[in-house]
Design a protein around this nucleic acid. Structure first.
Length: 424
RNA sequence: GGAGAGAUGGCCGAGUGGUCGAAGGCGCGCGCUUGGAAAGCGCGUAAGCUCCUAAAGGGCUUCAUGGGUUCGAACCCCAUUCUCUCCGCCA
């Protein structure tokens, strides 16, 4: 959520920046500023009347105490009329506040100055590439065929138990999952991230604070009896640790990592995008979250991006890094890097991580603040990224490492799997 | 699931109709003291909105949340949420 002062004081700037996200904010912002003026006017009137009422109440109390009942009763008459007036203004104030809030939440975050213009994923900027992203021979198998050939994943069994998109990992497939989770957590911990194990369900307040509600309600599984939502990512519970918190200036940087299962309804997905492990309703992910001072957040973002790249390097996967264009960067993000690995049998790039700086956009809803060196209270900047999401990593590992002898495990992972190769 | 108790500032905790944005303590900050530290002493220490060009200062709101009673509510009434204790069930 953008801050009202920013909108009020830099109207043209906000409109210009949002054009990069292909969002025409002119109308909404005009309305917001109009309502803002009315809201403040109502508050001035309401505050004035309430101040009078408070003073009268005090006076009446004093009169009663000194036994001047008659005079007190005269004042009581005055109070009645003032109360009605005051109520009028406070109601107006509440109403305008709500209207204003409703409009402000429709505005996306301002994109960072480095975000390229563009309409869709095709306009994203490739800023870095590494590794051999050549295609495999035509007879190379896609991961879903490898998974069944080597008995690693049973998609049909998952369909029987829960439904499509809920795979069952078996034997070395299950072991590979566990190995990756532990490997990712160990890497993150070695890089200073403090591990947390959050709940896999969140209440309404938490889902609202990180922006899943109200707009993405249909994307989450909802346990209606208890009004809890299954988390679509560990970002939600982990970030909510810091809801309504005022950090000290020397608490920074806050670094957390968390493994969780992630649940997404993915309503409306279809075709080759959902084949095999490409898109699931339940998947595993290690998430990294950082909170930092406003002036430090872009250094932090670079560090997180480089960290994720270092993990992909250890897995010996070819990858590239995209700077998302205005049309592809998410509603809440100011700047996002996507990291994609090349899956050589499918012959396509798969997004395995998205690293974003939300600046103060999330913090404003979270009410996550800090006292800076001068003792001033400011909104903190929040950042997060996947490090990493498992399914597409597994897809690329299986496809890229297939050999006539079996599927080779990258060196860094062998201590975790306990085997070097997956054979028939 | 049944019965009971409770929710107050960063934390503990007092407060049952006005003198309460809230005693006292802890913590934190600044200063005095000290060779240095600890102890001790003194002062300060909530957030949001708003008025004011800014600072200084003022006003309003906030004692779980939402309503109500009253001239006046942390305190009385109603509803909701959450927490704890005991019983039951249970990994």
């Amino acid at each position: 959520m953008l801050q009202i002062q920013l909108i009020r004081e830099n109207k043209e700037f906000v409109i210009e920046r949002l054009k990069v996200k292909n969002f025409d904010a002119t109308q909404i912002i005009e309305s917001i500023i109009d309502i803002d003026a009315k809201r403040r006017e109502a508050q001035i009137n309401a505050d004035d009347l309430l101040a009078k009422l408070n003073a009268l109440a005090k006076e009446i109390g004093d009169l009663f105490k000194s036994g001047k009942q008659a005079e007190a009763n005269v004042l009581k008459e005055q109070v009645a009329a003032l109360k009605i007036q005051a109520k009028e203004y406070t109601d107006k104030q509440d109403q305008f506040e709500k209207e204003q809030q409703q409009l402000i939440v429709q505005l996306p975050n301002l994109p960072h100055i480095s975000v390229p213009k563009g309409k869709s994923a095709d306009d994203n900027e490739i800023i870095f590439s590494e590794g051999d992203a050549s295609d495999m021979a035509d007879d190379a198998l896609p991961h879903w065929e490898l998974a069944s050939k080597y008995n690693l994943i049973d998609f049909e069994l998952g369909t029987k138990i829960a439904g499509a998109g809920f795979p069952v990992y078996t034997g070395k497939g299950a072991r590979l999952q566990r190995a990756l989770i532990n490997f990712f957590l160990d890497e993150a911990t070695a890089n200073g991230y403090v591990e947390v194990q959050p709940p896999y369900v969140v209440n309404e307040a938490s889902a609202y604070a990180t922006g899943q509600l109200p707009d993405k309600e249909g994307q989450m599984y909802h346990a209606t009896i208890d009004n809890l939502y299954l988390i679509p990512t560990a970002e939600v519970p982990v970030t909510n640790i810091y809801r309504d918190v005022i950090l000290k200036n020397d608490d920074f940087p806050v670094k957390n990592c968390a493994y969780s299962a992630c649940f997404r309804r993915e309503a409306g997905s279809y075709g080759k995008d959902v084949r095999g492990l490409n898109r699931l309703h339940q998947f595993d992910k290690v998430e990294i979250v950082q909170i930092n001072r406003q002036e430090d957040s872009y250094n932090t973002l670079e560090g997180m991006k480089d960290y994720v790249a270092s993990v992909l390097r250890k897995l010996e996967l070819p990858f590239h890094i995209l700077r998302l264009c205005g049309g592809d960067v998410s509603f809440t993000s100011a700047l996002t890097y996507d990291l994609e690995v090349y899956s050589k049998a499918q012959r396509r790039w798969l997004e395995v991580s998205s690293v974003s700086n939300f600046e103060a956009f999330q913090a404003n809803r979270l009410k996550l603040r800090y006292k800076d060196a001068d003792g001033k209270t400011k909104l903190a900047h929040t950042l997060n990224g996947s490090a990493l999401a498992l399914p597409r990593i597994v897809a690329a590992l299986l496809e890229n490492n297939q050999t006539p002898e079996g599927i080779r495990i990258p060196k860094a992972l062998i201590p975790y799997t306990g085997f070097e190769i997956i054979t028939l």
